[in-house]
Computed example of a mutant assay.
Amino acid sequence: MFKLELRPASSRVMAYFSPVFALLLTVFFGGLLFLALGKNPLTALQVFLLEPLRNASTIADLLLKTTPLVLCALGLSVCYRANIWNIGAEGQLIAGGLAAGATILFFDQGTPGMSNISGGLVLLLATLAGIAGGAAWASVTALLRDRFNANEILVSLMLTYIAQLLLMYAVNGPLKDPNGMNFPQSKVFSSEFLLPHIFHGSRLHIGFLVMLAASGGMALFIYRSFAGFRLTVGGLAPLAARYAGFSSRKALWTSLLISGGFAGMAGAFEVAGPIGQVLPSISPGYGFAAIIVAFIGRLNPIGTIFGGLVLSLFYLGGEMAQSRLGLPSAITGLFQGMLLFMLLACDTLINYRLRWKK
């Protein structure tokens, strides 16, 4: 009979290399998958992994997709460190995007007395509205967990579908473009209410710079502040945290509000950035993919940037595999799932060892 035992403490250093091992294994098995689909593995992997890096334009698109992934992962990392399992970043992103879009439309429709307000101020208000919308949506999970001890995994996940239905109602009702030929969408925002681009000729906007600053700020919060230390201790050693007088209720609300706020900011940047209006679909699943990003980054705010780049590469590679190789759109999700599975396997093999029990 086999028994799992913890490895020595030195294996914890190797745990930081686990995402690299997982990525290499994902590439290897991805090549086998392409071979099974009748494609040349080397050619297919080149299209999937290298074509998105071929020039400045595609790299800018890579960084553009990295922005919402990392923002959502920053908040999820805080939650998971506090042992709060928020799975609803996608719904919080949608809520934030909806709130930001409604704010921009309020000023973009020629509201009397609002014509002299600058586009920069409107974008700031829209971003704050997105943060507030995402945090408010996450607060529902916090309230039900706090008041009724409801499982935050189920609640946050189910709220995602409610957010999607609310978005559909908005684009078919109060936010619908009256001149949009009955399509379920809002009017296209005026150019002054869109996030300015960093480079001329690319879609990469200043939200990317905000994301980098947020990653640095969250690193300071987690590793250099007492509040971050309190959240981490509450997740790793609940009994020790309770003995020290740390409030688990405060940790619950703090982590979920931070997570929802970052996801809402990601939604605001999507609506005011590459989308430029409110559509029935704001996100292709960034909130769910951010779960993988957070664990690839080892729940480290700086590490999530690496994870965001990897998942963004999968998104772009999947799009190119569809157009150039004729593969289905599910290839992106398949690679994401393989990466998560390989990461869990590598973590298990690094942190544990099998021993024959007599």
Rank of each mutant, 00 (worst) to 15 (best):
E5P: 03
R7G: 12
S10N: 12
P19I: 06
P19D: 02
F21K: 01
F29Y: 09
G31F: 04
L33A: 09
F34I: 01
A36S: 15
P41Q: 07
L42Q: 13
T43D: 13
A44M: 06
A44S: 11
V47H: 00
V47C: 08
V47S: 06
L49H: 07
L50N: 13
L53A: 08
N55P: 04
T58A: 13
T58M: 11
I59A: 11
L62V: 02
P68E: 01
L69T: 01
V70Q: 05
L74K: 04
L74P: 04
R81V: 06
N83W: 06
I84P: 01
G88H: 05
A95Q: 00
A95C: 09
G96K: 03
G96T: 07
G96Y: 03
G97P: 03
L98R: 05
L98K: 04
I104E: 01
D108H: 05
G110D: 11
T111H: 12
P112T: 09
M114C: 08
N116G: 14
S118F: 05
S118P: 00
A126G: 08
A126T: 02
T127K: 01
L128N: 06
G133T: 04
G134K: 02
W137V: 08
V140Q: 11
R145A: 07
D146F: 12
N149R: 13
A150G: 09
E152Q: 12
V155T: 15
M158R: 01
Y161E: 10
L165F: 15
Y169T: 04
G173M: 07
N179Q: 14
G180P: 02
K187D: 10
K187I: 12
F193Q: 06
L194G: 00
P196L: 08
P196V: 05
H200Y: 15
H200P: 06
S202F: 08
R203D: 14
R203I: 11
H205A: 03
F208A: 08
A214R: 01
A214W: 07
S215M: 11
S215V: 00
G217Y: 09
M218I: 13
F221G: 05
Y223E: 11
R224N: 11
R230D: 15
L231K: 06
T232D: 09
T232C: 10
V233N: 03
V233G: 02
G235F: 01
G235T: 07
P238H: 06
P238E: 11
L239C: 10
L239K: 12
A244H: 11
A244W: 09
R249L: 10
K250A: 15
T254N: 06
S259I: 00
A266M: 07
G267F: 02
G267V: 06
V271L: 07
V271S: 03
A272G: 08
P274I: 07
L279R: 10
I282G: 01
I282P: 05
S283M: 08
A290V: 05
I291N: 00
A294D: 03
I296C: 00
G297I: 00
G297P: 02
I302K: 04
I305M: 10
G307D: 03
L309I: 10
V310H: 03
S312I: 04
L313S: 03
F314T: 00
F314M: 12
Y315E: 13
Y315L: 15
L316S: 06
L316E: 07
Q322E: 14
S323Y: 13
R324H: 12
L339Y: 03
M342V: 08
L344W: 08
L344H: 07
A345S: 15
Y352I: 08
R355H: 14
R355L: 12
W356S: 14
